[in-house]
């Protein structure tokens, strides 16, 4: 049989595939996060200006990356769900949303904790902070939509429309917030200590980011498996009720 996107779009095949792959994903996630955190806490040198608080970056930056990665997964799955009606695509979109929201929240919290020693305040209405906050709101709205529509098939398609409309609007929001911020405060005030990061800090960052990404994929697979089982249970219950 020729391999195509359809091969893994079959829920049963996905269940088998993910059961095999999951242990490896967890191992990679554990290794990435473990080694990455060791490197970032014990090997990476403290920054010459920020001292040890620069280490917050190793959690903050990968979380911020993954917050956008999560939305990307949601949008791609939503497009696939709307066009090809793949049963797995809307499961993937639904499962990715809470994980992405948590990483967005983590990025904001870690950013706040980093902001306190560096900027002297937990929260700044800086362009990037603000657009990340709006991203969090869009995640929450998307999840609320799923939670409020009972029929999963209808919820899937409505939520897919929202995700795609959000993807069209996010760049506009991003631009407007950038514009708003530069209008009010010069970027130099909130610029981090230098435009470039030294490679001794960059390497641990990549390792942690890789670990986080595998963790994301692992949780995504577990959530997708749970969602598929939940729908099976729902179908069985409805059959039972109809009989």
């Amino acid at each position: 049989m020729a391999w195509s996107i359809h091969t893994y779009a079959n829920p049963t095949r996905f269940m088998n595939f993910s059961a095999i792959v999951l242990p490896y994903v967890w191992a990679l996630a554990g290794a990435g996060i473990g080694i990455g955190l060791y490197l970032s806490f014990f090997v990476a040198p403290p920054d010459y200006q920020q001292g040890d608080s620069v280490r917050i970056m190793f959690v903050h930056v990968p979380s911020a990356w993954l917050s956008q990665f999560g939305y990307g997964i949601m949008v791609v799955s939503s497009i696939v769900a709307l066009i090809f009606r793949h049963p797995l695509a809307d499961v993937a979109a639904k499962s990715a949303a809470p994980i992405g929201a948590v990483f967005t929240f983590l990025a904001l919290v870690a950013g706040g904790l980093w902001g306190k020693p560096m900027w002297g305040t937990y929260w700044v209405w800086d362009a990037r902070t603000t657009s990340t906050l709006v991203l969090l709101f869009i995640y929450l709205g998307y999840m609320a939509l799923w939670a409020m529509i009972e029929d999963p098939n209808r919820a899937a398609r409505v939520a897919a429309v929202l995700a795609i409309v959000g993807a069209v609007n996010l760049p506009i929001i991003r631009f407007s917030v950038d514009w708003w911020n530069t209008l009010h405060q010069p970027a130099s005030v909130f610029r981090l200590d230098g435009p470039t990061i030294h490679s001794s800090l960059l390497w641990p960052l990549f390792v942690v980011a890789l670990g986080f990404t595998f963790f994301f994929i692992g949780v995504l697979m577990v959530r997708m498996r749970a969602e598929i089982l939940r729908r099976k249970v729902r179908t069985l219950q409805m059959q039972q009720a109809a009989a």
Partner: peptide, 19 residues
């Protein structure tokens, strides 16, 4: 639900409008 869904999208209108 509408307010949750729509308000984030109103951000650009608010920013440019107020400015």
């Amino acid at each position: 639900l509408i307010s949750l869904l729509v308000l984030p999208f109103y951000v650009p209108v608010l920013i440019f409008g107020v400015s």
